[in-house]
Design a protein around this nucleic acid. Structure first.
Lengths: 206, 206
DNA sequence: GGATGTGAATGTCTTCACAGCT
DNA sequence: AGCTGTGAAGACATTCACATCC
C-alpha cells in the first residue's frame, strides 16, 4: 500500500469518529460531502483520502458506513489494544490518567510514573503511581506500546532517552520541548503554548 | 507584511522559547543551525522563516538573541496579555486552570464555567467556577480574548455558537469534534485521540 | 441522476545552492 | 572564512473537472 501522508492520517481519524457516530444511529451509507462536513475539508479531499487504499464507495450512493469504519480501524491499527504508560503525574499527567476517554478506543493506561515521593503510591483509575526509577525493571518483559511524556520541559529529554533505550517506539509528548530521538521512534507533540501563541498571532493579524 | 503560513507561525513559537532560554543564559548570538536543532527543522527553513519579516541576522555571525526574541514576541502578539475563559471544568478543564503554566506567557485565566452544580462554586488558582448560564451577563462588558472549550464533544458546538454570538474571535478546542464557526473566528484544536491514533498508524506501518 | 475515482492543474511548503555581507 | 538572505527548483498537498459506474 502506498505511503499515506500525515495530514491524511489525521483526517482518517476524524472520519472514523464521525462514521462511528453514524453507525451507532443505524445510518447505512454516507457521501463524501457529508464526511467532508465533519472534517473541515472538501468532498474531493475525502475521496482522495479514501481512494488511497482502494475503491470502497458505490457510485451514485456513497460509502457503506460500517464497512468503511472497519476498514479505517484496520488501517489506523485500532483493531488491537495498546498498553500505555504515563510518565509524570502532575497536573497534566493525572488529568490524562483520570480522564480515561481513550480506554474505549483501546489505549489502556497500565503504568504511571513520577519521581515525587508525595505522588508515588497514589492510585487513579486503579493504576498506582510508581517510582520512575522502576521503569527499567517494570518494562523488562512486556513494556508499553506508547508512552505519554507529561513531565516538566527540562526532564523530558532525559525521560525520552531512557524510553529509547528501553525499546519504546512511540511517544506522545506534552512537554514544551522538541524531543530528539532515533528515526525509528515516532513522536507526536501536544503543545498548548504553541496553540495559544498561534491564536495570539491570528488575533493580531487577519 | 506578507502573510505568514501556519507552519511558520508554529515554528516561530518554538524559536522564541529556545531564544528565551538562551537569553536567560546570557548568550548574545545564535546561528540558524542552532535554531534549527530546537525546532526539528533545517537551517534554511529557519532563515526563510525569519527573513519573512526583514533581515535581522548578521552575516558571518548569526542572530542577536534578545533582539530576535523581542521581534518574535511582537510578531506573535505576545507583548500584551490575554484574558482567557475556560468552559468545562471537568478533568481537562480543571487541569488547565490548575496548571497555570500559561500565566507567565501572558495568558490569564479569569473565568471558568461549568453546568454541573457540583463543580460550580469551587475555586482553583483563585478563579471561581461559575454557572455557564452566566457567560452572557459576565461578558457583557469586557469578555475574554480567548476561550478554551473543554466540554464533552456533544456540548462543544453549542458552546461555540454562544461564544460566536458573544463576539469571541479565538477558540482553543479540546473537545473531539470539529467546530463550525464564521470565517472571522479562529479555532485551534488539541485532540489527543487523533495524536494517539496517528501513533497507532505509525506503529503499524513504517 | 447522483456520487465515486482519478489524472491534471494549481497552490503551498521545503530544500537547494549560491550570491552577498561582515 | 562564516553565515545570512533569497531566487529557483523540488516535493508535497489540495482542488478541479470530468469520465465512470451504480
Amino acid at each position: 500500500m502506498r505511503r499515506i501522508s500525515e495530514p491524511t492520517v489525521r483526517r482518517l481519524s476524524l472520519y472514523l469518529r464521525f462514521l462511528e457516530e453514524h453507525a451507532a444511529r443505524g445510518i447505512a451509507t454516507i457521501s463524501s460531502d457529508e464526511l467532508a462536513a465533519c472534517g473541515a475539508t472538501t468532498a474531493a479531499q475525502v475521496r482522495k483520502d479514501l481512494s488511497l487504499f482502494g475503491s470502497f464507495g458505490k457510485r451514485g450512493l456513497g460509502y457503506a458506513v460500517p464497512e468503511l469504519a472497519a476498514r479505517l480501524r484496520d488501517i489506523l491499527g485500532l483493531e488491537r489494544t495498546y498498553g500505555v504508560a504515563v510518565v509524570g503525574a502532575g497536573k497534566v499527567g493525572s488529568a490524562l490518567v483520570q480522564y480515561g476517554g481513550f480506554t474505549s478506543r483501546g489505549f489502556l493506561v497500565r503504568w504511571v510514573y513520577d519521581i515525587d515521593p508525595a505522588r508515588i503510591g497514589h492510585a487513579w483509575n486503579g493504576v498506582r503511581v510508581s517510582d520512575a526509577r522502576d521503569m527499567e525493571v517494570d518494562f523488562h518483559e512486556g513494556g508499553p506500546d506508547i508512552v505519554i511524556v507529561a513531565t516538566p520541559g527540562d526532564a523530558a529529554q532525559g525521560v525520552a532517552d531512557r524510553l529509547v533505550r528501553l525499546g519504546v517506539k512511540a511517544i506522545l509528548n506534552f512537554a514544551p520541548v522538541h524531543l530528539v530521538v532515533p528515526d525509528d521512534v515516532v513522536v507526536k507533540n501536544v503543545n498548548m503554548a504553541i496553540e495559544l501563541e498561534a491564536l495570539s498571532y491570528a488575533l493580531r493579524h487577519g
